[in-house]
Design a protein around this nucleic acid. Structure first.
Lengths: 190, 190
DNA sequence: CGAGTCGCTCAACGAGTGTTGAGTCAAGTT
DNA sequence: AACTTGACTCAACACTCGTTGAGCGACTCG
């Protein structure tokens, strides 16, 4: 009910310490989910990585599923600022995806909740992009662009395809930007 | 089932019958792996779907992992004939992916063996496509094209993105072909 | 400084898993 | 017809999982 913003009590010892371990558990969960996926991740494994007893994990998050739900929450500001698809492409540059994003994508093919989250996330981006480009088949072309970025992300960060792993970051961004905007650009410049 | 046993063929009852149930088990395995992924698929579930005792599944295939290996084998002729990337795009048309392909893709993010199989499969296609288009960054551009097709496949058959699920098959093929060949086409028509 | 709160650990349960060896019974062989 | 083969089932093992309730012990507070 009430948030723990009690000024009279020292925040460093009790509540802060609990919040710290809670955050440590969440971090461990994101890494485990991101590395192994939902099914192969065990509560015991998360606890081990966090240096904590397995039961404590459930005292904090209730269940493995609830822990997963918490682990795949994306920071809210992130997707909005990237309304431009070019900025999306640039995200491929990062050597490693943000942990929550990696956890989300890793399980998107096997866990309905993750699948739905990715679907909504991408649908939103498609709408934003489609509104920007206009023209016939705007939504479909936006969907193709966004799907391509998804495929590129999977190929690079999860499958490690040779051609996209050996190439430099700059090359990927340059060539991918040109390829994915060749169709959209024609519409824009006229 | 009683009819089946009594009225069955007098030709080869022993080996042929065993081969038939082996094939039935494999089909059931492909569906289960394709629907749930490797981890969530149980030997008991496969056996139930095949109408067979769980232990028989392992008598035929040795282990769950070996069964998975058998289930994700792609027919050999298929990938060769699709050297042209345009034909690849057309594969998106199919309402449902071939069962072994679906099983393969479903687990590609969580099972190393599946991940490696997809990686090799796509690397091969990239090489074929790159050899065909030539020019600077040929391999990288081919990789982007192939990755885009992967993303489109995932978006359509696994995530069911609104824009690619609601659109007609023909529209997808038409718009996707144009988008993905816009960059390559310039090089071709030189 | 003693009482109590509370973050945390310990030990255990029940369910479900992959896997195995022995047993069953019809099909095939002599 | 008697015997053998082999496809298949039954029952069980060993293990890991998520989850739970009781208990410990350090820290907080009156």
């Amino acid at each position: 009910m009430r948030e723990d913003t009690v000024v009279s009590k020292p925040m460093t010892s009790r509540s802060a310490r609990r919040a710290a371990t809670q955050a440590r558990i969440l971090d461990a969960a994101r890494q485990e989910f991101g590395d192994r996926g939902f099914e192969a991740t065990t509560v015991r494994g998360v606890a081990r990585r966090a240096g904590v007893d397995p039961s404590l994990v459930l005292q904090h998050y209730g269940s493995k599923s609830a822990l997963f739900t918490a682990a795949i929450q994306l920071p809210p500001g992130d997707p909005e600022e990237a309304a431009d698809h070019l900025a999306e492409v640039l995200k491929v540059r990062a050597a490693a995806l943000p942990p929550e994003m990696q956890a989300l994508i890793r399980s998107m093919l096997t866990v309905p909740e993750a699948s739905e989250a990715v679907r909504h996330h991408l649908d939103e981006r498609i709408d934003n992009l489609a509104a920007g480009i206009g023209g016939p088949d705007a939504e479909l072309r936006a969907a193709i662009t966004v799907s391509s970025i998804l495929g590129l992300t999977v190929a690079r960060h999860f499958l490690q395809l040779r051609a996209v792993s050996s190439a430099s970051d700059d090359d990927i961004v340059r060539v991918a930007s040109r390829a994915l905007t060749a169709d959209l650009g024609a519409e824009r410049s006229r």
